[in-house]
């Protein structure tokens, strides 16, 4: 045995300085919390979330109670007021046709948000179902769904919508508010679902191999029950985040289509139409508010949804959770 050198003498810490803890003791004091409750707690303390909520509440009020914001009729136009300046009750003046800019902006919220919401719901449903089936059942099902979504994914969203709507415009020229909204929604959803499918499929693939799923099978839970009770709930978080953010993207896409004359028909009051109409008018530099007001409303709405998505992502992100 080597001699003991300085600094390496036998040392035993005094027991009162290093008290032993019961092995694997349970902390009985903490308040029990599951993942969703924890996420909500983080969400509540996030300034991003409250900013997003504030924006979205204002937009919601615009949709349900437009009279809170303006008393003017968005559809009443008189050429006498063409490019009229701001006046009492008409804070941003008039469009070329002589309609109230602010009233049109307030009433335009309905079309944009409806399209965004409906498209998101449809995309999320389609994507979650196909993604869950592809990921969980695998094999031929997976190959079919994956190749199918690849095909839809290979056509850029806006390009695809341009074609679909140009064709449908010829087929059903007059389709009213809901008809035109549904055309845009269906066109967007048809080509946007593969993104959610991929995300869902990835999440399901990861979760289905976790041991708690095997444990449930060993207990006797059926495949369907496993998918419904264990796999889908655990795969939801990333899909929720992606959907919230894509809501904003869809609203932008709708307005881009309107800009190209392919969104909602011009008789529908919508931000996209107003901005599009305003472009040709403000080139001559008259009332700039004709464009800026609906554009600002659009940008704020999109920002609201993107911020909400960001806040939800931070609240659900497992990495952020560890810190």
């Amino acid at each position: 045995m080597p001699d003991i050198r300085p600094g390496q003498e036998r040392f035993v810490a005094p027991i009162d300085e290093t008290p032993l803890r019961a092995i694997d003791a349970v902390n009985v004091d903490a308040v029990p919390e599951n993942q969703w409750k924890e996420a909500w707690k983080r969400l509540r303390t996030s300034p991003l979330f409250w900013l997003a909520t504030a924006i979205l509440v204002v937009i919601a009020l615009m949709i349900f109670f437009p009279s809170l914001f303006t008393s003017a009729d968005p559809e009443r136009a008189s050429l006498d007021n063409s490019f009229g300046p701001a006046s009492d009750g008409h804070p941003f003046g008039f469009t070329q046709q002589g309609a109230d800019v602010w009233a049109r902006t307030v009433h335009g919220a309905r079309a944009s948000v409806t399209i965004g919401l409906l498209t998101t719901i449809l995309t999320a449903l389609l994507g979650m179902i196909t993604g869950a089936i592809a990921g969980y059942y695998g094999g031929l099902m997976d190959t079919l769904i994956s190749r199918f979504s690849d095909i839809f994914f290979s056509i850029p969203l806006l390009l695809a919508c341009i074609v679909v709507i140009s064709v449908l415009n010829n087929t059903f020229p007059n389709r009213g508010f809901w008809g035109s909204v549904m055309v845009v929604v269906l066109a967007l959803a048809t080509f946007a679902w593969p993104q959610i499918t991929r995300q869902m499929r990835g999440a399901v693939l990861e979760i289905k191999n976790l041991e708690f799923v095997d444990a449930a099978t060993a207990i006797g839970a059926s495949k369907m029950k496993n998918l419904r009770r264990h796999i889908v709930p655990n795969a939801l978080a990333p899909v929720i985040v992606a959907s919230t953010i894509s809501l904003g993207v869809f609203i932008v896409a709708e307005s881009s289509l309107s800009f190209l004359g392919l969104g909602l028909p011009s008789n529908v009051v919508s931000w996209g139409n107003d901005i599009s109409a305003a472009q040709n008018q403000v080139r001559s530099g008259q009332n700039l508010d004709v464009m800026f007001v609906p554009a600002a409303a659009l940008a704020f709405t999109v920002l609201g949804f993107i911020l909400l998505g960001e806040a939800v992502r931070e609240a659900l992100d497992p990495k952020a959770r560890k810190k």
Binding site: G248, S255, S256, M291, A295, V302, I306, E310
Partner: peptide, 22 residues
């Protein structure tokens, strides 16, 4: 980057055109 995501490209294009071009 969040602000850039929120502003539609045609609005942005238009504003830039107005400011830098006109």
């Amino acid at each position: 980057s969040l602000a850039m995501l929120a502003i539609p490209i045609f609005v942005l294009g238009f504003v830039m055109q107005l400011i830098f071009g006109v």
